[in-house]
């Protein structure tokens, strides 16, 4: 049986891991290579490295970071942040990514998803969807680190990205991200039911129970950042709680 995945996420800027609430007030959270190796030892099932640099110089740091992480890492690595065209994804894959995630660029030009899936395969093509709750019900897709609304309905967009060849959806509740109030379970259930590919829950995790809730709501994997970086929990201690709650995990 396929086990539920626990995925630490490293937001990187200029070669360092950073953490902030909704990407505001970023603070240093450590060295990406050291943290990656540490998380693998703790039992992480996969890692996600997102580049949140604002400049081209920052981007070049990211390729170097990916190369260094890959040398030592023997679990899967997803990379994203700033992927605009198919060749950007190619550079990340050459540097050592196993999967590439796209977000804003896919909304601006959805054909990017078709291109990536055709060239590198669906299993390599992750679409990150950032969602905000709408007053009248449902969720809207936001881009540019939450600064811009798109008018797109999250459920419709999730179906479209899968039809275009995305093999996985990384779903972030922008209302919950960095708030430590738990994943948005209604959103997770709605998207999980709407698509046939795996869904990674992101945004809001602060304790093991939040992870259990997300997996029971339909997520196939749970992403978290600050609860790991702050050293509050190790991946192993979280997995022990998941197992006690009846979730199958890799020991």
């Amino acid at each position: 049986m396929l086990t539920a995945r626990v995925i630490p996420c490293l937001d990187c800027r200029d070669g360092r891991v950073v953490k902030g609430i909704k990407f505001q007030g970023l603070r240093d959270a450590g060295c990406p290579v050291e943290l990656s190796m540490n998380y693998e030892r703790q039992g992480a099932d996969e890692l996600i490295l997102l580049d949140v640099s604002a400049t081209p110089e920052g981007r070049s740091h990211q390729h170097e970071t990916v190369r260094k992480v890959r040398e030592g890492l023997s679990i899967p690595l997803t990379c994203g942040g700033g992927v605009r065209v198919t060749d950007d994804a190619g550079l990340l894959l050459d540097a050592g990514a196993d999967k590439v995630s796209v977000n804003t660029a896919a909304v601006v030009k959805p054909e990017l998803i078709d291109d990536l899936a055709l060239r590198y395969g669906s299993q390599c093509t992750v679409v990150a969807i950032d969602a905000v709750r709408q007053n009248g019900g449902g969720w809207e897709v936001v881009v540019q680190s939450g600064r811009e609304r798109t008018g797109r309905d999250v459920i419709q967009w999730a179906k479209e990205v899968v039809a275009r060849g995305s093999g996985e959806i990384m779903l972030t509740s922008w209302d919950r991200d960095g708030t430590r109030s738990g994943y948005e379970l209604d959103l997770l259930s709605a998207v999980s039911e709407a698509v046939t590919v795996p869904v990674i829950a992101s945004g809001g995790a602060a304790n093991p129970e939040h992870l259990v809730d997300a997996l029971k709501a339909g997520a196939n994997a749970v992403l978290a950042a600050s609860i790991f970086h702050d050293g509050e929990y190790t991946v192993a201690s979280l997995k022990a709680v998941l197992q006690d709650a009846g979730v199958e995990v890799r020991p």
């Binding site: 049986m1 396929l2 086990t3 539920a4 995945r5 046939t196 795996p198 196939n220 994997a221």
Partner: peptide
């Protein structure tokens, strides 16, 4: 088959 999410992504025994 259609009973599972495809692609299979993750760790299996």
């Amino acid at each position: 088959g259609e009973a599972v999410r495809v692609p299979q992504l993750g760790w299996n025994l």
